[in-house]
Nucleic acid binder design. Structure first.
Length: 882
RNA sequence: GGAGGAUUAGCUCAGCGGGAGAGCGCUUGCCUUACAAGCAAGAUGUCACAAGUUCAAUCCUUGUAUCCUCCACCA
């Protein structure tokens, strides 16, 4: 057989793109025919930007799962797609416009949407490219976008159907409103941040002139919206004044004092001004007392014409200063105190969010949440790690109605039409041209769009064709696993479960894998604003996609955030390099050899040992993958390939490849190729490109590794007795090496040694593999002493529970330092022995401990005693060397 | 205010009721038929602190400290 050559240097750039293209051309990412299914829908990245390290981690893990399942022969589908990300994307375009000195209103809805689609296309192309470069094996033929035709249809179906069930309603409510983005936000889209503020104590005089009361407020400018002042009904101080009227300063308006138990008597003066249109608590209080809500803000956050003329059209923050100033001038302001408090900010633009009274659309959530809670209770969904279930339950139990209308242009337009003539409101799956009631053509569609999450909560089934009864929906729904970050458990995961229960009467997925967050090495979240992010593409440029993916996998312990920097990826890079070079070496050895059939009887103990290790690794990986322990699974393949296969097996075979017979050499390379082929399959989910590149070059490969059969535990390969003997041999080799190093004997110096053991299996192994074992230790001769009658004087002694070894080292030794080392060792062992003795002489231990625990202690006692004995003898032997 | 994490080698982190682990870094020696991105041999830890449960605690319980998330509220 001819030598198969690999490039000297591992250079992922040379093949990663090519391999991906090959997979694409062969349609390897499409699900194969067959029974059952395994499916994942990709959390759709926003088309606002490009993928960051979090996406890289998330998609790597999905790909690992998908590749593993695909190789197990199950029809496997991974659906990719992107999200239109309403506010975020609109903001991108508005920022562009701003640079040109324009607002969206200046160019109009149509032109604005054109530009937004262009932004979408641009980012989509980058994102897709990034996913390809990372090696994601998702089915691009099934790629979806939250605003494509099918999904738009799904959104309409969902909206109208919920409306018909009275689960969608419209109403005038106090909502979170971002003046900067010009739209309402859902409750969980508001982020509270501690902000320095001032508490103003303001006097409100009684209308009858009989003095005044004092209220505290952080927002004096909202006083124009005040409709009452509230006190606690049990507050003795104020019982007598409830019902009296107050004159609102800076105005002529009169407002009553009311009693409501939401007031905290301890805070400030125990009196609160009630501003229903600008505070959620006040809104509730206002409703309880049938008070009017006076909205004093324009949609852009400036004060409107409900306030005295001088404050009109002035931004709230500025107006606050003016009002405070005027209150002071007129003698109403009692005092001001610093008062840090948390203020809601928009999760997209970080501007201050105002509670704002407006007409919005809502989804009634209670019944949906109950179904979703039920699903968890019945174990139809399982979180990995489990702790997130509490978060989920808490949110579901305290669910509030979901404000779904957004005053944006980018998104799914709300499918509701109003008749300008008769006022009829029509909710419709199809666009309508005339009023169904009065047949007037003067109708207009609701100008608002739906919250982005209203399309993404349908994702697991809308991407598969819903509301059509498509083949894909039948085959691949419900999906199997969802992989997502914990930051969107509320926004997305919970809502998908609710939508799926509502529309599909099923959970959308069974397993929910919550990934770590990627942080920088200072523990900070990677973010654009901090500029501490690492671009996956930079990592791939430097180390290759395999290196990045393997590293992320290796570090992604369940439930723990992962801190990384650029250097972290050396881990994966080194591993990939190791695989490359090991393969290169093995392929070099093919030259002039022929591959033969390897029968079980041809295998030596070492061969059986490595097959056993392989088998055990396959078993571990299987159980680790089943519980989504990606870090453990990648550590398993890492240590198998590097520590077992390269460090021991390949090393062991080098000697055979030099001095063996032709038959032995043919056998050896055949086993090499078999193990290499199996290893590529085993490692493929974790090191995808590299294993494919290598696999294709193997003389014994069949097809592509991506669709090859995943190695599973095989009873035939089980060989734990061989493993025991091999481990003994390993420790013997390590002992000798250690002794050499500690004495300081040059590596090239060949030594003679004696091993004395009663272990027959070890003896057999040492005899059979004499050549290679000696080569590992740099011995020219290894004598095996089965009867304890060889002369061991003038030697350096080594003790092990299963053997004694003696190294003939001539004069090259510093007796003093070796004796000292042994004495230290004896001290340590005696301390351990003392511990064991203490346990064994403890009556309570002997009575209560498990049988195995006691046996173990007894065994330890033996071990320590014999070790001390041997070490003392060794000192004597050493003394003779003087 | 409520909830959940974290605290283990110099760094990043696994682990676990019965003799402390990995990767990187460090020390020493090696260009050995692949890999110096390598090989071999090492050193390094009151497993945050305190009390409790237990025959036995790094692991379970409680408390303390520090740090980090999330939720709620804040006139």
């Amino acid at each position: 057989m001819k030598k198969i050559e690999l490039e000297k240097n591992y250079s992922p750039k040379d093949f990663e793109d090519r391999i991906y293209k090959m997979w694409m051309d062969k349609k390897e990412f499409s699900p194969k025919e067959g029974e059952g299914h395994f499916s994942i829908v990709m959390p759709p990245p926003n088309v606002t930007g490009i993928l960051h390290m979090g996406h890289a981690l998330n998609n790597t893990l999905q790909d690992v799962i998908i590749r593993h399942q695909r190789m197990k022969g199950i029809p496997t589908l991974w659906v990719p797609g992107t999200d239109h990300a309403g506010i975020a994307t609109q903001n991108v375009v508005e920022r562009q416009l701003k640079k040109e000195g324009l607002r969206r209103q200046d160019i109009g809805r149509e032109k604005f949407l054109e530009r937004t689609w262009a932004v979408k296309e641009k980012h989509h192309d980058i994102i897709k490219k990034q996913l390809e470069v990372m090696g994601c094996s998702c089915d691009w033929d099934r790629e979806r976008f939250t605003m494509d035709e099918g999904l738009s249809k799904a959104v309409r179906e969902a909206f109208v159907s919920l409306y018909e069930k009275d689960l969608v309603y419209r109403g005038k409510y106090l909502v979170n409103y971002c003046p900067k983005c010009g739209t309402a936000l859902a409750d969980d889209e508001v982020e509270y941040e501690d902000t320095p503020g001032t508490l103003f104590d303001v006097n409100y005089p009684f209308a009858d002139g009989s003095g005044n009361i004092t209220v505290a407020t952080t927002r004096p400018e909202t006083m124009f919206g005040d409709v009452a002042v509230a006190v606690h009904p049990d507050d003795e101080r104020y019982k007598s004044i409830v019902g009296k009227m107050l004159r609102l300063p800076l105005t002529d308006r009169l407002i009553p004092i009311i009693a409501d138990s939401f007031v905290d008597m301890e805070f400030g003066t125990g009196m609160v001004k009630i501003t229903p249109a600008h505070d959620p608590n006040d809104w509730e209080a206002g409703r309880r007392h049938n008070l009017e809500a006076i909205n004093i803000l324009n949609p852009d956050g400036t004060l409107n014409d409900k306030v005295p003329e001088k404050y009109r059209n002035i931004p709230a923050e500025e107006a606050r200063k003016m009002v405070a100033e005027d209150l002071k001038k007129e003698g109403y302001l009692v005092k001001t105190t610093d008062h840090p408090h948390s203020v809601g900010h928009c999760y997209r633009c970080h501007g201050i969010v105002e509670p704002y009274l407006s007409e919005q659309w809502f989804v009634r959530m209670r019944s949906l949440a109950d179904m979703a809670l039920e699903a968890l209770k019945k174990d139809e969904i399982v979180f990995y790690p489990k702790k997130w279930e509490n978060t989920y339950i808490h949110w579901m139990e305290n669910i509030r109605d979901w404000c779904i209308s957004r005053q944006l242009w980018w998104g799914h337009r709300i499918p509701v039409w109003y008749c300008d003539d008769c006022g009829e409101m029509s909710v419709s799956r199809e666009d309508i041209k005339e009023c169904p009631k009065c047949h007037s053509k003067h109708i207009h569609q609701d100008t608002d769009v739906l919250d982005t999450w209203f399309s993404s909560w349908l994702w697991p089934f809308s991407t598969l064709g819903w509301p059509e009864k498509s083949e894909d929906l039948k085959r691949f729904f419900p999906t199997s696993t969802l992989v997502s970050g914990y930051d969107i458990i509320f926004f997305w995961i919970s809502r998908m479960i609710m939508a799926s229960e509502e529309f599909m009467h099923s959970v959308p997925f069974k397993d929910i894998v919550i990934t770590s967050l990627v942080r920088d090495t200072q523990g900070r979240k990677m973010s654009k604003s901090l500029g501490n992010g690492i671009d996956p593409i930079d990592v791939i440029d430097r180390y290759g996609a395999d290196a990045m993916r393997f590293t992320l996998c290796f570090l992604a312990a369940q439930g723990q955030d992962v801190q990384i920097d650029m250097d972290s990826f050396k881990l994966g890079s080194k591993f990939a390099n190791k695989i490359w070079n090991a393969t290169r070496f093995l392929l070099m050895n093919l030259e002039g050899r022929k591959l033969v059939d390897v029968k079980k009887s041809d295998l030596s103990l070492i061969d059986r040992w490595i097959y056993h290790r392989f088998n055990e690794t396959a078993k571990s990986v299987e159980s680790q993958m089943a519980s989504y322990k990606f870090n453990e699974a990648s550590q398993s393949v890492y240590s198998f390939f590097w520590n077992d296969f390269c460090d021991w097996y390949v090393e062991s075979a080098k000697e055979k490849m030099l001095s063996g017979s032709d038959r032995e050499k043919d056998l050896q390379v055949s086993i090499f190729m078999d193990l290499l082929e199996k290893s590529m399959r085993l490692m493929h989910p974790f090191v995808s490109f590299l294993t494919e590149e290598i696999y294709q070059k193997l003389p014994n490969h069949k097809g592509d590794v991506i669709v090859s059969e995943y190695p599973m535990w095989d009873k035939e390969l089980e060989s734990s007795e061989d493993e025991r003997v091999f481990s003994l041999m390993q420790s013997f080799v390590r002992d000798i090496r250690g002794a050499r190093a500690s004495i300081g004997i040059a590596p090239e110096k060949k030594l003679k040694a004696v091993i004395s053991t009663k272990d027959k299996d070890l003896v057999r192994l040492l005899r059979e593999e004499d050549g290679f074992i000696r080569s590992l230790m740099g011995l020219e001769e290894l004598l095996i002493d089965e009867n304890g009658d060889l002369d061991t004087s003038k030697t350096f002694p080594i003790h092990n529970l299963s053997y004694e070894a003696y190294l003939f080292i001539g004069d090259a030794i510093n007796v003093d330092s070796e004796v000292k080392k042994l004495q230290d060792e004896i001290k340590k062992t005696e301390a351990l022995l003392a511990q064991t003795d203490k346990k064994l002489s403890n009556k309570a231990f002997m009575e209560n401990a498990k049988r195995e625990a006691i046996d173990k202690e007894l065994h330890k006692k033996d071990e320590f005693e014999s070790k001390i004995k041997a070490e003392k003898e060794h000192i004597e032997l050493l003394e003779k060397l003087r």
